[in-house]
Write a protein that binds this DNA or RNA. Structure first.
Lengths: 226, 226
DNA sequence: ATTTCCGGTGATCACCTGTACACAGCGCTA
DNA sequence: TAGCGCTGTGTACAGGTGATCACCGGAAAT
C-alpha cells in the first residue's frame, strides 16, 4: 500500500490530465462526487453500515476531517446516494411508459428499460436493494419514499388503462404494488446472476415479463367489490 | 448499566431459578442458544454486519474469547441463525397448506398463518429480510437456498392444482415465485408498520390476499406456450 | 490590495475492535 | 479415583474508529 497523498495537496489521477477544476465550487462538487462514487464502489459486497468514514475519505483521497465539509455523517451521504440513484431511473421508466403509451407492448419495453438500467449501473441498484431494508433508518426511509412515488406513478398509468372498468383506487394500488414488487424482485435476482452467464439474466427477464403478463391477465378478470 | 457477571461464574437470570443445566453438552447448547437469542435482539434495528463479536458475547454474559468455542465468526453464527428462523416457518406454512388442501380457501389460511408467524416472531423475520440482500455472502446464500426450497414446494402445490391444464414446469415456477415475492414484500412491509396501529397491518394483509387472488385469476386465463 | 472565507491538513483524544495466550475448574471417561 | 477434555476466564496487544482541534493557503469578496 503506497501512502496516498502524503505530501501532495491534490490527488494525482489519470483524470487530472488537464482540467484541474477551476472555481472553488466546482472543486467541492468534484470531491463530493468522488465521495459518492467511491462509496458506491466500496459497498459492492458489504453494507453501508460496515463502511467507515475514514475508509471512504481515504479512498477519495482526502483526510477524514475533510469529509465533514461535505456530509455530517455517513448516513447523510447515504441519503444523498439514494436520490442520486433514483432520479435518473424514475425519469427513464417514465419515458419508457410515456413514449410508448400508444404502442403495443408497454410491458416488454418497461422490462427492457429496467434491464438496461440495471446492467449499466449495477452498483447503484445493489446499493438501493441492499439498503432498502438493511440500512440505517434515514436511508431506509428515503428509499421507501422513492418507491412509493414509483408505485403512485404506476397506479396513475393503470387508472388510465382500466378506465371504464370501475376499479377501486385501492385495487389499482394493489395491482401496481404487485407489479413493482415483481420488478424489484427481478432486479435483486438480476444483481446476483453471474455476469459471465448472460443467459441467466435473460431467463430472469423472460420470467419477469411473463409475471407481468399474468398479472395483466388477472386484471382483465378482476372485479372490484366496492 | 450494571456490570454483568463481573465476578460470578454464571449469569444470575430469572431462568436460573432451579435447573442450572446438568450435563456439559446441555450447558453448551444453552449458551449457544443465548448467543443466537441475544444476536436476534441486538439487530432489531441494525444489520448483522454492524454487530461486533464482543457486543454479542458481552450481552450473552460470556467473555469474547469464549465466543469462539461456539462459532468461528459472527458470519457462522449468522448462517446458523438463518435455519433456526426458517425451519419452523417452513413447517408451519406446509401444515397450513397440507392441512387444508381440500378446504375452500387456501389463500386466506396461508396469509393468516404468515401473519401470525410474523406477529409472533418479528425479530426472526426482520433478520431474514434484512440480511436477504444486505448481509454477508454466506448468510445471503443460506437465505437464498431456503427461499428456493420454499418456492419449490409451492410449485409442487400449484402443479397439483393446475393438473389437466398442461402448465409448463417453467410457468409453474414463474407463478410460484411471483406469489412468494408478493408474500415477502408483505412481510417486509408488515415489519415496518407501527405496532400501535394494527389497522395498518390489517390493510397490508388484505392487500396481500387480493394480490394472491389476482394472480390466481390470471392463472385461470393463462395458457402456457410450449 | 487587503481581508474574508472555506476546503483540506495533521496531530491527538478516548474508545472499541478481533484475536492470541496461558490458565482455571468442572464433567466425563478410562 | 485419576486425569484428560472442554467451556469459560483474564490479560494483553496492535490496530482501526469517530470526533475535535488549531492551522494553512489559495480562491473569492471587498
Amino acid at each position: 500500500m503506497s501512502e496516498r497523498g502524503g505530501r501532495s495537496r491534490h490527488r494525482d489521477d489519470a483524470t487530472d490530465t488537464e482540467a484541474e477544476g477551476k472555481s472553488r465550487a466546482e472543486r467541492k462538487e468534484r470531491t463530493r462526487q468522488r465521495l459518492l462514487e467511491v462509496t458506491l464502489r466500496l459497498i459492492e459486497d458489504r453494507s453501508l453500515a460496515s463502511l467507515s468514514l475514514r475508509e471512504v475519505a481515504r479512498e477519495a483521497g482526502i483526510v477524514p476531517t475533510a469529509f465533514y465539509r461535505h456530509y455530517a455523517s455517513m448516513d447523510a451521504l447515504g441519503v444523498d446516494l439514494v436520490d442520486d440513484a433514483m432520479r435518473p431511473l424514475r425519469q427513464m421508466i417514465r419515458d419508457a411508459r410515456r413514449g410508448r403509451a400508444a404502442h403495443s407492448d408497454i410491458i416488454a419495453s418497461t422490462v427492457a428499460v429496467l434491464a438496461r438500467q440495471v446492467r449499466d449501473h449495477p452498483d447503484q441498484f445493489r446499493f438501493l436493494t441492499r439498503e432498502r431494508y438493511g440500512g440505517v433508518a434515514g436511508v431506509r426511509r428515503a428509499i421507501a419514499t422513492e418507491l412509493r412515488l414509483f408505485t403512485t406513478e404506476l397506479t396513475v398509468d393503470l387508472a388510465r388503462l382500466t378506465a371504464g372498468y370501475d376499479w377501486t383506487a385501492d385495487d389499482l394500488e394493489m395491482a401496481a404494488s404487485l407489479m413493482v414488487a415483481a420488478m424489484l424482485t427481478t432486479v435483486m435476482d438480476l444483481l446476483e446472476t453471474d455476469p459471465r452467464r448472460p443467459e441467466d439474466a435473460d431467463a430472469l427477464l423472460d420470467k419477469a415479463e411473463r409475471q407481468l403478463r399474468l398479472i395483466a391477465l388477472g386484471m382483465g378478470e378482476w372485479r372490484s367489490k366496492p
